[in-house]
Each structure stands twice: as structure tokens, then as C-alpha cells.
């Protein structure tokens, strides 16, 4: 028996190397596994290199852009000054509305929604595998980022944390084909689902044919999926298809955030609820 093992040692070893990952894949499927110490060590080594490379390339690109932009800077300055005046006026008006809103909420006895932390991070690299559209960000467990938390920019939602290690996390983008987000139309409050389609616009699904939705409508998160907080901008409806038959209508949603040009993001949501929703995290990447 031992001599047989010795004789076929090489093919046996190669067989193990081939079959072990295949069996692991067939058992775990799309879920993947949590990072083990080796994964964490490799990520800890590679991510700073990614970060330095990204910073140096972005620095060079930005220096060239700054030089080119200097030409039109005076004209832009005038435009921005005007815009600033308008925005200050808007902020003042919004302040009034906010005070009124708070007063009315108190009057109605609404509970104040507890806002989770907002953790800023930089995008340090993009996943080199086309199977899953994801990016790596420079904030991890040390900063309070955990799997399941949502990632946004001031323009709208970006995606969801699918893996967090020491100082880095991986974020599955909303444009990925496995991504599903519970959404509603801001104007009419009609509910539906935004599904990733790989590239380009998201797909508007599960919206009843009788619901009030139109091209150009703003789509926001509904919060009913328990993953994304409600009220975050997803995008705008285009190419709406109102079918004569069937239960649902469909269309495209042009994402508010261009995920191919991300630089800085914010991680939001409560880390405790994100940890508790271990399965919910997988729900978003279904």
C-alpha cells in the first residue's frame, strides 16, 4: 500500500490540487467563504501596494489635469461664485424646512431614526475578475466596517461590503449581475427592485403594472431589504416598458453613481446590524 502511494505520489498530489478547490467550490457555491488567516495576510500585504500604486497613478493624472484646467479657472471661478450664492440661499431655506420638519415630527411623536456611522474610504483597486464587479476600499474592521454594510457617495449608492479584513474591505457594486436592491419611486412611492446587469443601466423589476412610474423619475432605496438604508438615491428611470399584459412593468435605471470612476466613498449603516444580518449580506448579492 505504502509502495503504491510512493509510486503514484505525483499524480495523487496533482489530483488533490485539482479536486480540493473543485469540491470546495461545489460545496460553497456562490457564497464564498470568510477570510482565513492566510487570506488576511495576503490581503494585508497586497492592499498597501495597491493603495500606493493607485495614489501615484491618480496623482500623475490629477497633476496633468490641474495644469490643463488652469486655463479656464477664472471663468469657472466666476460661475462657482454665483453657484455658491445660490446654494447658500438654498441652504438657508432648507434650514428653515428642517426646523419645521423637526417641530412637526415632535408634534406627531415620531421616533428619531438612529443614523449609523459614516466611515470615509478610498477605492484602492478593482477586482481583476469579471465574474463579480467589486472594488477594494481602504477601510476595514479596524475602522468599524463589517460585511453587509452599505457603501455610498454623496450622489447615491455604490454597493455593499461583501468581505472585511483588518484595514481593507471588498465592495460588490450595484451594477453587478448578482446585485438586487429594494427601491421605490421618490415621487409616487411605488415599490420595485433594481437589479444589476453587469454594465450600463440597472434593470427595474417587480414593479406592478398599475404603479405610477414614468421616464425621468428618481429612484431611491426603500430600505425594505434590510440592507440599504431608506432614501438613498439609486438613479433615474429610462426606457420604461408599460406592457399591456402581465403583472409587472420594466425599464432601465441609469445609476446616479458612475461606478467605473469611483475615488472616495462612505461606508454607512450600523456595524452591529450588519454583523447580525450575515445572511442578509448574501441576499444583496443573490
Amino acid at each position: 500500500m505504502l509502495s503504491l502511494l510512493k509510486r503514484y505520489r505525483r499524480p495523487l498530489l496533482v489530483g488533490v490540487l485539482l479536486l480540493y478547490p473543485l469540491v470546495a467550490f461545489l460545496l460553497s457555491g456562490r457564497k464564498g467563504r470568510d477570510p482565513n488567516p492566510i487570506d488576511r495576510a495576503v490581503i494585508a500585504v497586497t492592499s498597501p501596494v495597491q493603495q500606493v500604486l493607485t495614489a501615484s497613478i491618480e496623482g500623475t493624472v490629477s497633476a496633468v489635469r490641474h495644469y490643463l484646467d488652469l486655463r479656464g479657472v477664472r471663468q469657472e471661478n466666476d460661475t462657482l461664485r454665483l453657484e455658491n450664492l445660490q446654494l447658500r440661499a438654498s441652504v438657508q431655506a432648507l434650514g428653515e424646512s428642517r426646523t419645521e420638519n423637526e417641530r412637526l415630527r415632535k408634534l406627531l411623536g415620531y421616533a428619531e431614526a438612529a443614523a449609523g456611522p459614516e466611515i470615509p474610504a478610498r477605492v484602492v483597486g478593482v477586482n481583476p475578475v469579471a465574474k463579480l464587479l467589486s472594488v477594494r476600499i481602504s477601510a476595514g474592521e479596524k475602522e468599524g466596517v463589517f460585511r453587509g454594510m452599505s457603501v455610498v457617495t454623496p450622489d447615491g449608492i455604490v454597493g455593499q461590503v461583501i468581505r472585511a479584513t483588518g484595514s481593507y474591505s471588498d465592495v460588490a457594486l450595484v451594477t453587478d449581475t448578482q446585485s438586487r436592491v429594494a427601491v421605490r419611486v421618490q415621487r409616487s412611492r411605488a415599490r420595485g427592485t433594481a437589479s444589476g446587469a453587469g454594465s450600463g443601466p440597472l434593470k427595474l423589476e417587480n414593479m406592478l403594472r398599475t404603479e405610477d412610474v414614468d421616464n425621468g423619475d428618481l429612484i431611491i432605496t426603500s430600505g425594505t431589504d434590510g440592507i440599504y438604508p431608506p432614501g438613498l438615491v439609486v438613479g433615474r428611470v429610462t426606457h420604461l416598458e408599460k406592457k399591456e399584459h402581465g403583472m409587472f412593468q420594466g425599464g432601465d435605471i441609469v445609476p446616479a453613481v458612475d461606478t467605473s470612476k469611483l475615488e472616495e466613498v462612505l461606508v454607512v449603516g450600523s456595524p452591529y446590524s450588519a454583523m447580525a444580518q450575515g445572511s442578509a449580506a448574501e441576499g444583496a448579492s443573490k
Binding site: 473543485l22 470546495a24 460553497s28 457564497k31 481583476p128 463579480l132 465592495v171
Partner: peptide
């Protein structure tokens, strides 16, 4: 042997970089 081990390591790294390590790319590399 050297190639199989190296391919296994290369596939593992790709799996790790994909954000959702499932073992698929490790198997495919070998």
C-alpha cells in the same frame, strides 16, 4: 509538480482578489 503547485497558488491569489473566494479560480488554474 512545480507547475501544479504554482498554478494552485496563482489561482488562489486570483480567487482572493475576486472578493468572493469560492475555489473556482484555483481549480481552473490547475
Amino acid at each position: 509538480l512545480e507547475g501544479a503547485f504554482s498554478a494552485f497558488a496563482v489561482g488562489y491569489l486570483l480567487d482572493l482578489m475576486s472578493g468572493q473566494p469560492t475555489g473556482l479560480f484555483t481549480f481552473l488554474a490547475v
